[in-house]
Every structure is written in C-alpha cells, then in structure tokens.
Amino acid sequence: MTQDDPATFEQALASLDQVVARLEGGEVGLEEAVTLFEEGQRHLRACRERLAVAQRRIEELTAQGQPAVPQEPGPF
C-alpha cells in the first residue's frame, strides 16, 4: 500500500471516526485525551493532504494498437 493508495485515505478516516468516538464517549483521562487529540489531528491532516493533492483534469487516450477498420473489398 503506497502513501496515497485510496485505502490509506479510508483507513485514516475510519481511525479518525474511532478516535472522535472514544474522545466524545467521555471517560478518558486527560493524558489519554491529549494523545487521542493528537492522533486525531494526524489522521485529519492525512485526509486533508490527500484531498489537496486531487486536481481536476482529463486525459484522453485511444485504445492502443487499434487496427484500422477493415475495408469492404471493392468490386474491382
């Protein structure tokens, strides 16, 4: 899995969901809360960096090696 593999984005988002759920669930100590907050910030940054990389463009290709359309044999 490379740095910008789509799975990376999805994992970061899923981790972020979990972190926020734990943090919002209450019952975490201050030290743990700070650790979770920082971890969440890291995931958030990863998601936003991935989004910032995207840019609108279109590349048009033809199906490579496409043979010329065969001609019907003529009458002479």
Binding site: V20, L23, E24, V28, G40, L44
Partner: peptide
Amino acid sequence: LELGLIRGLVRA
C-alpha cells in the same frame, strides 16, 4: 470530526 476532537479534549 475536527470539532469532535476539540470538544472531547475540552471536556477531558
């Protein structure tokens, strides 16, 4: 989610 992080920290 960012707001959730901040809220969680403030509450802790």
